[in-house]
Amino acid sequence: MTERRAYPSDLKDDQWQLVEPLLLEWRAARAEGRVPTTDLREVVNAILYVARTGIAWRYLPHDLPPHTTVYGYFQAWEADGTAEEIHNTLREQLRRKKGRRILPTAAVIDAQSVKASPNAPDATQGYDGGKKVKGRKRHIATDTLGLLLVLIITTAGVQDTNGGKLVADELAATLPTVTKAWVDAGYKSKMIAHAAGLGISVEVVSRDAEQKGFVVQKVRWRVEQTFGIMSRYRRLHRDYEALPSRSRSMIHWAMVNSMSHRLTADPNKVGQYLHSRPPAAT
């Protein structure tokens, strides 16, 4: 069989070496004496092809595995937490590479409303009156490198303050080392008090009323950078997944791709993931 030509979204060899051990371990635990025939690297490449191009699963090119096979693995890796485990493992490796502690002590919290697919159940959608968007809302916390720590998907009608409480709960439960967080002015005192009760001191970073146009905000630019990385993946421009849990998984795979690029980047080459810190506002 002739080897197919690579797509731009394919994992390079050094990127695959970061992911392969975890997927081989996953496969070994489920083999039960069977000889597997599906190439797991090609399955991951197909998932990333969907993420980067935004196509529907059934429109996968014929030289990638069948869309039913790929979606079956995508579902399985979401359901048993494999995708999130791979994501968290790469995050720890990248923090170590950047000279940080594996467990972060600070976070940046924000939210983003996106339109949902017409196929999404109405019960999983809502209306964000401020952004005038009907769909879902992504509540996230990142570390100070912009790496994803918490991801919660709700209806777009959930206020940032209430979503922020959920994020704080998740931070306290999974990363109790986090004791400091930054938010924008959309998060009210109830969220700040709730986080304080969990041992997280929240600082509101407000925009100066005299500032005009785009201005980099202290620390908060990191979470905006993360949303910017997500925007490079067309599948994330909207929430096309039928279930919020699948939305989380697609975002995790997008961030796995991003982090694997950063982990294998040539330190002598300035690329899209190696930009220096933006200049502070004057």
Rank of each mutant, 00 (worst) to 15 (best):
R100F: 10
A106W: 02
D39K: 07
Y127K: 06
Y49D: 10
P104Q: 10
L11E: 00
T53R: 14
E42T: 15
Y59M: 10
S113A: 10
W26M: 00
V50K: 13
L64A: 14
A120W: 00
R138P: 15
V108W: 00
R138C: 15
A79Y: 02
S113V: 08
P66M: 08
G72Q: 07
V43N: 03
A56N: 11
R52T: 11
K98M: 09
A79R: 06
A46E: 07
E20R: 03
Q75H: 11
D128E: 08
H87G: 05
P66I: 13
D122T: 13
I140C: 14
I140M: 08
K12R: 14
T105R: 12
H62W: 04
V50H: 11
D13H: 05
A29C: 10
D63R: 03
P104C: 12
G33H: 02
E84H: 04
R136E: 05
T69D: 11
A120I: 01
R58I: 13
D110M: 08
P118Q: 01
A123N: 06
N88D: 11
R138T: 14
R96N: 05
L103S: 11
A79W: 04
D128G: 03
N119V: 12
D110R: 03
D80I: 11
F74G: 14
D14M: 02
P121L: 03
K134D: 04
G130Y: 05
A79F: 08
A106V: 01
P36S: 11
V44N: 00
I140G: 12
D63L: 09
I102D: 02
T53E: 07
R27L: 14
A111G: 11
F74R: 05
A106K: 02
N88K: 06
Y59W: 11
I109M: 04
T124I: 07
Y127P: 10
P104N: 06
I47Q: 03
T68A: 09
T105F: 10
A111Q: 07
L90S: 00
E84F: 01
V114Y: 07
G99Q: 08
R52K: 15
L22R: 10
N88P: 01
A106F: 00
P104R: 04
W26F: 02
R52C: 14
V19H: 00
E20V: 00
T53H: 13
A83F: 02
W57P: 14
A79E: 11
K12M: 07
P61Q: 02
K12P: 03
Q112S: 10
T142C: 08
D13T: 06
V114T: 09
A56R: 07
Y71G: 05
R91K: 08
L40I: 06
R58A: 15
V50T: 06
A83Q: 00
K12Y: 09
P118M: 08
G54H: 07
R34S: 15
